[in-house]
Structures are given as C-alpha cells and as structure tokens.
Amino acid sequence: MTPVIFAELQRRHAEPHRAHHDWARIAGMLAMTEDIAHALADRPAFILAVLFHTAVFDRTRPDSEARSIAVMRDMLDRTLPRPMLDRATVLIHAVLRQELPETDDPGLRADAALICDMDHAVLGEPAARFMAYEAANRREYAHLPDERYRAGRIAAYQMLLWRDRLYLTDRFHLEREKRARRNIDAALDRLEEA
C-alpha cells in the first residue's frame, strides 16, 4: 500500500463526524491483527478489510458499506490481485453486517469470525473504556433525537444479549464475554432510566 493511499485512509478516518469509527480504532484493530496473525488464513486480505471497512462512514446513509468497498477497489484494483480484493470484500461485508459468509472455505469463515469479534471487542473492555465508546457512539448518531436513539440502542443491545455467545471465536469469548455482558446490562439500565 502506498503512502498516498495510507494518508487518504487516515484523512477519511479523521472526518469530524467520526467519534468512534476513527483512525485510533483502525490502529487498535491493526494491533489486534498482529496479536492474532498466526490464526489468520489470509493476513493481507484481512488487513485490507480492517483498513477499508469504514473508509466511508455516514450514519445517515445506508450505503456506507458498498461505498467503502468501492473506495478500496478504486484505489487498489490495478495494484493488488483480484482474489485478495474479493476476499477483503467478503470480510468487509461480514464485519459490517455482523454475519459470517456462506462459503465452503473454512479459512474465510474463520477470518470473518475474527474480524467480527474485533469489531465488537470494545463491548468487553473495562467499564470506563466501554462508557467512552457509548458516548462516542451517541455523538455519531447526533442526527437522531434522544428518544429514537435510546429505543434503537436498547433494541440493538437486547438482540445482542439474546445470543448464546456475543463473540464467535473462543479467544474473544474467553477474554471478553462476561465483561461485555456486564457492560451491556449496565448500558441498558442507563438507557432505560433516561
């Protein structure tokens, strides 16, 4: 990846409407990627997905996912192999939809599970970090009135708690599941009291 493309990604992630989905988050996900590099089936495609999955980010539009993929392809189509970009595209779809791809490729499914878990890693952070995330998330939804935001957030958290497991991989499940559930329960209490 060229310095120009890297700088463009940093510029995009510095947009003023980003409070959580910023470059610090990407840097954190890249650091986690290094920690799990041994478990990845396709590290280059995984890193591309991390770098580009929120290249376009606008909470008021439903097409950020497609636009992020288009940015990646526009920037890299002539320089990287198509299979790598195709795999990164599948991973971007997985992380933004929070669902594993339908594929016979176990490595791709495993990489998708890891990127989904990395995306939700903040749910299992210490309470202060989780509360900072909650505040940042609210700023990203500043266009919504409080009542609508609360209703949507409550529904989203309740749907998460209905799952048998918040995290798809054993690594994240063992490290973060209990704390994530405590954080979500506390967030629901605050949202319901507001």
Rank of each mutant, 00 (worst) to 15 (best):
R171G: 09
A180T: 06
E175T: 12
A113L: 01
R165F: 14
A135T: 08
V95P: 12
E147F: 07
R138E: 14
Q158C: 11
I154L: 10
A142V: 04
N183W: 05
L123M: 15
T169W: 05
P101C: 04
L168S: 02
G152N: 11
L100T: 10
L108N: 09
A151H: 02
A128Y: 00
A135I: 04
L168E: 07
R138S: 06
R97H: 15
D105N: 06
L161K: 01
A142P: 01
M131C: 02
R171M: 09
I92W: 08
I115S: 07
W162Q: 09
Y167M: 06
V95A: 14
A132D: 15
Y141Q: 02
R182G: 01
M118E: 04
A194R: 14
H120T: 11
L114H: 13
L174E: 11
F172V: 01
R181T: 01
R153I: 10
A156Q: 05
C116I: 15
A155W: 00
D189M: 06
D119G: 13
I184L: 14
I154Q: 09
L100N: 05
T103W: 03
R129Q: 08
L91C: 12
V90H: 09
Y133A: 10
W162E: 10
D104P: 01
H143E: 02
H173E: 08
T169N: 03
E125G: 02
Y157A: 03
A194Q: 13
F172T: 02
A121C: 12
D105R: 01
D164C: 00
R148F: 01
D189T: 08
A135N: 06
M118W: 05
C116M: 15
L144T: 00
A156P: 02
L188K: 05
F172R: 03
C116Y: 09
H173N: 10
